[in-house]
Simulated scan of single mutants.
Amino acid sequence: MQDKIEEMEKLEILINQFQDLHEEYTGVWLDEVFLHWDWWISLIISVGTWIFWIFYRKKESTHRLLHAGIFAMLISIILCYIGSAFGLWYYTGKLTPTYPAWFPYNLSLLPVTIMFLIQTKPHIASWKKGIFYGLLTAFVGEPIFVWAGFYVMTGWEYIYSVPIYAIIFIVCDWLTKRDTFEKV
Results as ranks from 00 to 15, higher is better:
Phe103Ala: 13
Phe71Glu: 07
Ile118Ala: 03
Ala68Asp: 02
Tyr91Asp: 00
Ala68Cys: 02
Met73Ser: 08
His63Cys: 11
Ala85Gln: 11
Leu107Asn: 11
Phe71Asp: 05
Arg64Tyr: 15
Ile118Gly: 05
Arg64Ile: 09
Thr62Met: 11
His123Trp: 14
Leu79Lys: 04
Lys59Ser: 11
His67Cys: 12
Gly93His: 06
Pro97His: 00
Pro104Asn: 05
Tyr91Val: 06
Leu66Lys: 10
Thr98Ser: 14
Ser61Thr: 12
Lys58Gly: 08
Ala85Glu: 11
Pro111Asn: 04
Pro111Gln: 03
Leu65Arg: 00
Lys58Pro: 09
Ile114Cys: 02
Tyr90Met: 08
Cys80Gly: 15
Ile124Met: 06
Thr113Pro: 02
Met73Ala: 09
Ile75Thr: 10
Pro100Trp: 07
Gly83Tyr: 08
Thr113Gly: 04
Ala101Ile: 10
Pro97Gln: 01
Lys58Met: 08
Leu79Gly: 09
Gly69Cys: 06
Ile78Glu: 06
Lys59Ile: 11
Tyr56Met: 13
Leu66His: 11
Thr113Lys: 00
Gly83His: 10
Tyr99Phe: 14
Phe71Val: 03
Phe55Met: 12
Pro122Tyr: 00
Phe116Asp: 08
Pro104Ser: 03
Ile124Gly: 04
Leu95Tyr: 05
Trp89Met: 02
Leu110Asp: 00
Ile114Val: 12
Ile77Ala: 14
Gly83Arg: 09
Phe116Lys: 11
Leu66Ile: 15
Ala85Tyr: 14
Leu66Ala: 06
Ile77Phe: 13
Tyr105Gly: 15
Met73Glu: 10
Lys94Asp: 00
Pro97Trp: 05
Pro122Lys: 02
Arg64Asn: 15
Lys58Trp: 07
Leu109Glu: 00
Lys59Asp: 12
Trp89Asn: 02
Leu79His: 02
Cys80Lys: 07
Tyr91Cys: 05
Ile75Glu: 05
Tyr81Arg: 09
Phe116Met: 12
Ile114His: 01
Leu95Ile: 03
Pro122Phe: 03
Gly69Tyr: 06
Met115Arg: 00
Leu107Lys: 09
Ser61Leu: 15
Thr98Arg: 11
Thr96Tyr: 14
Thr62His: 07
